[in-house]
Each structure stands twice: as structure tokens, then as C-alpha cells.
Design a binder for these strands. Structure first.
Lengths: 242, 242
DNA sequence: CTCCTGACTATTGCATGCACTTTACTGTTC
DNA sequence: GAACAGTAAAGTGCATGCAATAGTCAGGAG
């Protein structure tokens, strides 16, 4: 059932997978000995991976107290989407210049796979969308030909690893999202960086709205500081008291 | 001579300091045993710190081959400044809402200290500016009240740890930069997020120009792909062949 | 002279063991 | 019954040792 060994994949990836599959939920402690036993390695590589994940923002590390899966508040999720829009928009713009033909072909494949597994139909499999979506966004970042951009995208993407793609999306949001992936590749093929950037902005605004609901209106007299989160059936991402 | 022990400060910070002081230059190998001896700890915490720094983007880690200080090409430095402008602009905007009085006071102090050590005069000490500037930008990021924003700012800032603040800046650029720090705090005190954001944009555009020279003009017939870097006397940041 | 092959060295990757900190429990005292 | 102290258990932090891999150099064949 669970992959019983690390199998040449890094320990950090294995732990990320455990978080993505909700085996560890936001706020859960990540005990080193426990992870070491699960992944069938010693505590040493586990500790290294946890430090790495902590720097990535997926895990919170407190000295002498261990690591926990980060629990993002709705306000912080808003920030994740804002930063992703800006950073991945830049990535898309740079990828319009730098992407190779092979990368564009692979992005096409991934966009189609996301469509197959995301849209209603015989092949729908929402639990398989997360991986394809991750591959799409991270490959796009690589296509920017900039290690700096790629690292920033990776960090932000992994920070939101607990947000499962398309889970809780309404169908219209899913259709828009699927269309965005295809359109981004079209923009890249046209070598139009601004087209790619703005489509990426739309893509992430759509995801934000599907997960978090309408944006809070600053000068309204109700719910000034608390963004809505209807539409998302995630467990309330309340931050554990530090 | 060198700080002979880690003294309660984390090993990662100690290694960062070695890079900032140019004891290790971009492209240099970071051998675990060597660092362990220098910092008077065993290889284990050194390895953990290197993984962390690799996730932060300051160090490049190749399996079975060890870690090297990242050498950023001029094109990647351009990307660092673009992303910093977008991400730290967002941080400044959020800090205008969230910064506490104590944080604003500390930012004021840091801005003044940067002025004292950066501007010509009896207290000028360019080598001390880096630390103050780092404190300023990282504290500003903390003031955003968002761990996500803070982590992104940290990552981008540390990625460019090899760029020494104000070294090679002409005097006009230094004066602008000093004024920017003060103006940003003024904008935060006015709780004006857009003011803070745009001043931060100017601040980083100024730093970019001082270090990298005029931006390449896309549709010019000369130097299309190679950004100028006159004005910076840094050693040519050529990327080692991978 | 060049290229290939082999062993040797240096360095990384990982497992294990011990010391110290934190936490939870239990027994005692007010 | 509640609060506190002392102790035991659990878990992290770090050092050390061994196995495995990459890099280096010497030797020999073409």
C-alpha cells in the first residue's frame, strides 16, 4: 500500500508525498523516528529532509521540539496566491522566451492529462490531478531558464502542498482552470510573454476564488479582516497556538 | 580571528556569514569536513545546514558531489531583482497594515544606521552596511505578519547573499538608497501600502541599476541577450560549467 | 603521443549511540 | 481537591564510524 522504501527518490519527496496524501495533516507533528520507520531509513536523512522542507516552508521547525506540518491561515493562503501570481507570472513570461520544443510538448501533454482527469467523464480522477498540476507548474518554472525563478516557484508551490488541486472546485472553475493550462502553452508557443503572464494571473485568481471565495472588500463594514472560505471543504486551517 | 565556535547561533547562519564575507566565493566548493573543522562541530549539523541553504538557493547541492556556493549569472541577477521587487513590494504593502510600533521604531533605527555607515563621513563603513540592510529587509518581511511572505523574501534575499550592499555603488545611488529606506518607513507609518510598495520598487530598481547598469533594450541591434554590468567591480559572475 | 584501464584517495551518504531537553505522569503537600 | 515537585519516558541534537561513490593519477597498450 504505502511505498515501503525510498527507492532512489529523495526522502524529502517521500515526506512531501505523505503530506499531499493527507497522511499527515496540517498541524500534525512529524516525529523523526516515526518517519524513519515509515520510510525505512535512519533518522539522519529524515532530519536533513525536514530541514530542507522547513526552508521550503512546508514544515515548521521548532528547536528541541521537532517539526510540524504548517497550517496556513486563510489570510496566509491569500498571500500564497498573490505571490504565486506574481512569481509564476514572471516565470511564464520568461518561459515564453526560454522554453524548448521538448518542454512545450511535455507541457501540452500535462495540460491534456489534467483535462482528462479533471473534467467530468470516464477518466475523471481528481486525486491524480495534483501530481500532473505540480509537474505542469514546476516544469513551466524550469522552462524559465532561471534557477532563481524556479526555486521561488518551487518554494511557493510546496508551501501550499496541503491544498489539493480541484478538490472542492465547482465545475465551472475546473473548466476555466483546464482551459488556462492549455492557453498558457499556446501563449508560450506564440512566444508572447505578456499573454502567458496574464493567463497565469487569471489561472491563479480562479483557483484562489474557487478555494477561498470572494475577496474581502476593504472598506466594507462586515468581515473586513476575515476572508470567506466557503466552497472549500478543507478542515479549518486554524493556526495552532505557537 | 575567525569566530572559533558556533556560540548558540545556528550553523546555517555561520556558513551564510562565511559566504557574505567572501571567505567562500561563488563557485567555491563547500566541503563538509572543512566547514565542520572551521565551525568546530561535527559533519552532521553541517550537512543539515547545507541542505537548508540549498533549499534557500544560496548553495547548489549535487548528490554525491557536495555543495557549491551558487554563482549567479547577470541574467539571473536580473531575475533576482525583478522577483525581489514583486515579492518585497507585496511584503511592504502587507507590512503597512501589520507592522507593530516596535517594529517601526526598529526599522527607523536600521534606516539611520544604514545612512551612517553608507554615506560618506566619519562613520562610513560599507562592510557593516550588509548586516543592517539584511536586518531591515528581513524585519520588514516579518512585519507583514505572514510566514509565507517572510519565507519568500528570506529565500530571495539569501540567494543574492554574495552581492555586497553598496560595494561598487556610485554616491548618487547610495544617497537614493538611503533615502528609500527612510521613505519606506514613512510610508509604513502612514499605513499606505501602495506608497510602501512603489518605494520598494524604486529601491530595488536603483540597486539593480547600480549593480548591473542600464537594462538591455529588447529590440536593439546590439547586446540583445547580454545585460550590461558596468559599474559593478564584482568578479565576473560566470556560471561554472555544470 | 594519445587514449584507455586500473587502483587509490578523498568525500559524501547513512546508521548507530549517547547526551540533553522537553514533556507527561505520579506522588506529595497544603 | 488543587497545586507543586520529582522522576521517568520520549524525542531531539550531535558525534562518530563505516559503506559507497566520484575524482585522480599512474601505468600500459595502441
Amino acid at each position: 500500500m504505502t511505498t515501503t522504501s525510498t527507492e532512489r527518490g529523495s526522502v524529502a519527496d517521500a515526506i512531501r508525498a505523505l503530506v499531499v496524501t493527507r497522511e499527515f495533516q496540517p498541524g500534525d507533528r512529524l516525529a523523526e523516528a516515526d518517519l524513519a520507520a515509515r520510510l525505512d531509513v535512519s533518522r539522519t536523512p529524515v532530519r536533513e529532509a525536514l530541514r530542507q522542507l522547513a526552508a521550503d516552508g512546508m514544515v515548521e521547525h521548532v528547536p528541541n521540539k521537532g517539526a510540524r506540518v504548517v497550517a496556513l491561515s486563510p489570510a496566509e493562503l491569500e498571500h500564497v496566491f498573490e505571490l504565486r501570481a506574481r512569481v509564476e507570472g514572471t516565470a511564464a513570461s520568461a518561459a515564453a522566451v526560454g522554453a524548448t520544443g521538448a518542454e512545450l510538448d511535455r507541457l501540452d501533454e500535462l495540460a491534456e492529462e489534467i483535462a482528462r482527469h479533471g473534467l467530468p467523464g470516464p477518466d475523471q480522477a481528481l486525486d491524480r490531478v495534483y501530481g500532473c498540476n505540480a509537474d505542469f507548474h514546476l516544469l513551466l518554472a524550469e522552462s524559465s531558464r532561471s534557477s532563481v525563478i524556479a526555486a521561488s516557484v518551487r518554494q511557493l508551490f510546496h508551501t501550499a502542498a496541503t491544498v489539493r488541486t480541484y478538490q472542492g472546485f465547482d465545475e465551472a472553475s475546473v473548466r476555466r482552470s483546464v482551459a488556462h493550462h492549455r492557453e498558457i502553452v499556446a501563449a508560450l508557443r506564440a512566444r508572447d510573454g505578456e499573454w502567458a503572464r496574464s493567463t497565469m494571473h487569471s489561472h491563479l485568481a480562479n483557483a484562489r476564488a474557487a478555494l477561498l471565495g470572494p475577496r474581502p472588500v476593504a472598506h466594507s463594514h462586515d468581515t473586513v479582516d476575515a476572508p470567506r472560505d466557503d466552497g472549500a471543504d478543507d478542515p479549518a486551517p486554524t493556526r495552532p497556538p505557537s
